[in-house]
Amino acid sequence: MQLLDRSFDVSTTPVAGATLSLEAIRGVEQFLFREARLLDERKFAEWLALWTEDGRYWVPRFHDQANPFEQISLFWEDKMLREVRVRRVENARNWSQQPLTRSAHLVGNITIEGLDAAGHLIVRSTLQLTEWRIDQRQLAGSVFHKLAATEDGGWKIVLKRVNLVNCDDVFANLEVFI
């Protein structure tokens, strides 16, 4: 089972520095803004295409959680599970998405952290997220993206880790990606 593959590197601590041109940094920032915008616009098919085949989406349950293998997670999803989530929220009989969840992601404080062991770029940002479905709620936290460079000069997501400030709190359902 792919989700249990403990060799997947979830660490977000860089092992090497990264030197990017200003233009390349702007490219990374635009990539993050666009990713957030696809979620806000519920363009899930396009959002799914931002990922590598092997990419993982992780929202830990605990602060400083070491890995998703020994403890529960708010989200721990591979390609298959991301696709299932999209299929569900887009199903016509998605009772809990009537009305739909609406969101506004505000992404800021973007910093290039360095490279991981496989040479993926580690990028940190801060997220403020307003979500509405009947009730409005605020979510916030730090986000780590690990990005793989593509041949055409773009990026794909290898890991997106969202550290919510209230990760260990009581939650109403989290139906769409953060």
Binding site: V84, N94, S96, N173, E175
Partner: peptide
């Protein structure tokens, strides 16, 4: 989990 794909329809 709160992010379950199954539970939200129950809760609704």
């Amino acid at each position: 989990s709160p992010s379950s794909n199954v539970m939200p329809d129950d809760v609704e």
